[in-house]
């Protein structure tokens, strides 16, 4: 039973191996494509920002005059946003995760909430903006204030925290729980004193990811109707505000009129990217430090 012509196979082999090699480099090129793009993007933005990004840019207020315009107000706005988003998502996200992992019976309700959360994660951010516009800005009458923006943003990033916290709680080994129960501790005592402390690194990583998403998100804020006017630096959560990405947005579209706005947008992007980079570095440090504990 000799159906296969060895000579033919040998001849084919050369082409097949060549093809394999060619495609290997093609695939590598595709892999590097994204990285090259990233490098160009960062270099380009950096070059655009040279000469504009200095200390006074960080401390000056917004102005129509590009020479003296700064991002003090926008940076303060972003910080204020985090003051809302941080505690709100932490409480709701971790609460939801504990409920789902520790209390809810695996059944219809459990899978309904779970499916609901994963579906929310896929809803476009602009739709959250519409929700915020209707409920927080208009119905509850908050206007385009920090609290309206913060609550909208919290709902948007909530799924990230829930999923991360769930994973963190799930990965707490059973023997720790058993040890606690074995000493007669109640369920809530076990969760509070054993499970949560053990899950904290995972939860924190998730929180940082969620906050970095919130810092960079623009669409929901735009939908809340935040004006491009020069706004005073906000002093409370009920004040109007602008945020770093909003500033990038307005300066970018206005760069058609005033060319220097492009440089201001680039400088703001650099600030934004540096903040995100620092936050993600912290997340990585936390993850590496607490990775292999059990």
């Amino acid at each position: 039973m000799e159906y296969i012509d060895r000579g033919h196979v040998q001849k084919k082999m050369r082409t097949r191996l060549l093809l394999n090699k060619v495609f290997k480099y093609l695939f590598l090129a595709a892999t590097l494509f994204g990285l090259v793009f990233l490098a160009i993007l960062i270099t380009r933005v950096f070059i655009d920002s040279i000469g504009w990004l200095d200390f006074s840019f960080l401390t000056n207020r917004l102005s129509f005059n590009p020479e003296i315009a700064g991002i003090k107000g926008a940076a303060a706005g972003t910080l204020w946003l985090m003051v809302i988003v941080g505690p709100v998502t932490m409480t709701l996200g971790v609460g939801t995760a504990i409920y789902l992992e520790e209390y809810a019976k695996k059944g219809r309700l459990h899978s309904f909430i779970q499916t609901n959360i994963s579906n929310l994660a896929g809803v476009p951010s602009i739709v959250f903006g519409l929700l915020g516009l209707t409920v927080f800005v208009r119905v509850l009458g908050f206007g385009s204030s920090i609290i309206a923006g913060g609550l909208t943003m919290s709902l948007l990033v909530l799924p990230i925290v829930v999923v991360a916290a769930q994973e963190a709680i799930r990965s707490v080994p059973g023997f720790l729980r058993e040890a606690s129960y074995g000493m007669g501790a109640t369920k809530w005592q076990t969760i509070k004193k054993v499970v949560l402390p053990a899950a904290i690194p995972g939860i924190l990583t998730g929180m940082i990811l969620a906050l970095s998403r919130a810092i960079g998100e623009t669409a929901p804020l735009v939908a809340l109707g935040i004006p491009a006017l020069i706004i005073p630096v906000p002093g409370s959560i009920f004040d109007n505000f602008t945020a770093l990405p909003m500033q990038v947005y307005y300066w970018t579209i206005d760069s058609a009129l005033t060319a220097e706005y492009l440089n201001l947008a680039a400088a703001t992007i650099i600030v934004l990217l540096v903040v995100l980079f620092l936050m993600n570095s912290v997340a990585i440090i936390i993850r590496n430090k607490f990775q292999k504990r059990y």
């Binding site: 039973m1 296969i4 033919h8 196979v9």
Partner: peptide
């Protein structure tokens, strides 16, 4: 295997499959 090595002829493939399964 035969396909990977460049055998496309359907009839031949059928024979190979049958024989191999018998084998």
């Amino acid at each position: 295997g035969p396909k990977v090595h460049g055998i496309r002829d359907k009839k031949l493939l059928k024979q190979i499959v049958e024989n191999s399964l018998k084998g």
